[in-house]
Nucleic acid binder design. Sequence first.
DNA 1: CATGCGTTGATTATCGTTGACCTATAAAAT
DNA 2: ATTTTATAGGTCAACGATAATCAACGCATG
Lengths: 150, 150
Amino acid sequence: MNLSHDIEKYILDLLDGGDGNFISLRRKELAEMFECVPSQINYVLRSRFTPEQGYLIESRRGEHGYIKIFRITCESADEKIAHIHDIIGDAMNLSEARRLLEALQERKFITARERLLIEVALRHVTSEGRYEDEYEIAELLRNMLCGIMG
Amino acid sequence: MNLSHDIEKYILDLLDGGDGNFISLRRKELAEMFECVPSQINYVLRSRFTPEQGYLIESRRGEHGYIKIFRITCESADEKIAHIHDIIGDAMNLSEARRLLEALQERKFITARERLLIEVALRHVTSEGRYEDEYEIAELLRNMLCGIMG
DNA sequence: CATGCGTTGATTATCGTTGACCTATAAAAT
DNA sequence: ATTTTATAGGTCAACGATAATCAACGCATG
């Protein structure tokens, strides 16, 4: 399809083939392999391996520099993501959000601590003079849940 | 991997092997052991044995000089919360925040999923035209981390 | 023909290493 | 008691090797 797509596929294959839940890369080497500028790798990571999509990136510069890509979500289930989108919709108020979180914890999809983290984040974006924006609540909730439930 | 990494491992082994929560060393001896410049030791301490990574350094110059490295142990929830307050302070930028989360996961204060949830929340409050507010980042981090430690 | 994704490269920032120079402490000399 | 000396650790800047950022440009798609 295009370069970014190929690099994405290559990284996904590495993740699937590896024995752990992360891989380690040299940005420079990968760029040489795909005959592109190194910053192209950053673009792929920024657009396709975000926390919202279930990935965490760690990197170091200098000699022996590296980029590590962690896959947090075990099963890559598009249906699950679609399901979360369905449940949340594009707007949700705080009470609805809290009920959803309670239900998710009840069904063991999230832990008590994870539920607490999400509630704190929701409280943060709806406090301090900010009005309760049901679209923002839905977006944040979707991003957080999709990230860990994939 | 590299020299700094080897020195780090050596110090960690000493800490694990010792009977207390600290060790004492001579900078010069360690430098001789690793055949490097003494200031290399300072670099390792500055980059890998910081409070956010769970360590405190105490040293003395002159004859009978030494460097002591203390491992911060947070037994109770209250200690954890106080410690987190200390290392976050009242302002933090995004890179610092991410480094902190990496360290906290390494120290088993949070899980990978929890780290991801926090990263998503941080991205949310710093995106979409919002400027990066270091006070808001610190506040959100404190609220989320203290929330689940309590 | 505008919008947004993808591509590129110039510039900036960070990591690990090294060494020159600075400061503090204890013991010895006076 | 004060000064001197030896001995320890601290700070900082420079360097080479990476990686990150940012803005301009290309190109396809609606």
